[in-house]
Design a protein around this nucleic acid. Structure first.
Ligand SMILES: [Mn+2]
Ligand SMILES: [Mn+2]
Ligand SMILES: [Mn+2]
Ligand SMILES: [Mn+2]
Lengths: 219, 219
DNA sequence: TCCTAATTTTAGGCAAAGCTAAAAAAATAA
DNA sequence: TTATTTTTTTAGCTTTGCCTAAAATTAGGA
């Protein structure tokens, strides 16, 4: 009924990888993501399989069970709710909250999460534009695409970031881009994928790397 | 620089015991308080002594060093600030917050504590009337005494509880007693220490056990 | 196919934090 | 002052979560 921090972190990492890879998650992929060794992953994965949180076939990778998915989603829900709290109530900046949420996501109390959610006004997205799973673990799919997929003259609203390192978020701040910002593609260079975009009154150049890490919603 | 949950819990327990006992804290006392075995305490106490968080002499008990005291006070500060948050912002009842605060007290982020404190309006006391240590670990001493020490016709304001079990706090609720409530001693039975007190318009009987667990401030 | 390289698992160990049982020291009682 | 009881420590084991090194398996290239 109660899982350790480590177990919860593994489930969360596997959950994300499974979505990204759309299938089995390999030992090495998990080790990479969690900054640990493949042999340690094998150990843990066997333990999680014993607890019916995932299915594991030697040399074939793992898949979360319904039970495993639910726990992972609940950890992610807590993580994102706390991030909203930190930004909305404590006025943290969106690039400062991840580390703290990594700790807060493991606090165990159903009632606390319920009340926190309510206190925050039942938000649907975290400060980085990521959807907050509902109490049952369901995630609202949103229509979003990468800015890099947009064509010239297309217009979109920034709804999230793919990468959320401090450096990237600080870059976005410098350019006055945040969740909700309207972006227009003024030009696109097919050779290197770079773009010229308009944000408010400003027009400026961005590289492909930037465009590939910004999610927008186009109408 | 960073201490484990277990280490922090030991430091906190020893801090409280040291104040209560006004001197060295024995292995058994710690084991009792922490619901663990004396042999486990000896192990941990040796580790904490190695880290200069306390002084330990075999068979003689322990005393926190300045360093140990500071860490303990910071954990207590966090515990009590979070309790205020849970009661004031999330509308938890004062008898429901301790368990959750036991978890939250270990979250590590100076900045978080600073902002939380500010968000809560820099409170001086937690929902049970216990003082919140300042960031340096200093605790405001308050003039308070047990209701049981009051004489007939004395009047006081409830400023805290000694025991804070759910049962006791729920009893107080039933009697409409909380922090800030004015209490008048109408009568006192010297044989068994029981009292008749007035709370608002109500007059009722309380046993010695109750009177010995309620702190009041008399003017 | 067969050989090499990459991936994954196993074996064996370590540190943290706990436990029980036995030994040692201190406190109490006779 | 002894003898007994209580307290405290030591010794030895367990579990969790991690590691390195070696073995096993799978995947890719020629
Ligand atoms: Mn985590
Ligand atoms: Mn986020
Ligand atoms: Mn604790
Ligand atoms: Mn309290």
């Amino acid at each position: 009924m109660n899982y350790s921090f480590s177990e919860e972190n593994y489930l969360k990492a596997i959950y994300h990888l499974e979505q990204y890879l759309k299938g089995e998650v390999s030992t090495n992929a998990i080790a990479d993501k969690m900054d640990t060794k493949p042999s340690s992953v094998t150990d843990m994965v066997q333990k999680l399989a014993d607890k019916d949180l995932l299915t594991y076939k030697k040399y074939k990778g793992v898949l979360l069970t319904a039970k495993g998915k639910k726990i992972a989603a609940s950890v992610i829900r807590k993580h994102r709710l706390w991030e909203v709290f930190l930004v909305e109530k404590l006025n943290f900046h969106w690039d400062e909250v991840h580390e703290i949420a990594e700790q807060l996501e493991h606090i165990q109390s159903e009632e606390l999460v319920k009340r926190l959610d309510n206190f925050l006004g039942n938000p649907d997205f975290d400060p980085h534009g990521d959807p907050i799973p509902d109490p049952q673990g369901n995630v609202k799919k949103t229509e979003k695409k990468l800015l890099s997929e947009c064509l010239k003259n297309q217009r979109g609203i920034c709804v999230g970031v793919k990468e959320s390192s401090g450096e990237f978020l600080q870059y976005l701040d410098k350019k006055n881009i945040s969740i909700g910002t309207k972006i227009t593609v003024l030009g696109k260079e097919f050779f290197d994928g770079s773009m010229v975009i308009q944000v408010g009154q400003d027009q400026f150049f961005i590289s492909k790397v930037i465009a590939e890490n910004l999610y927008v919603q186009t109408s």
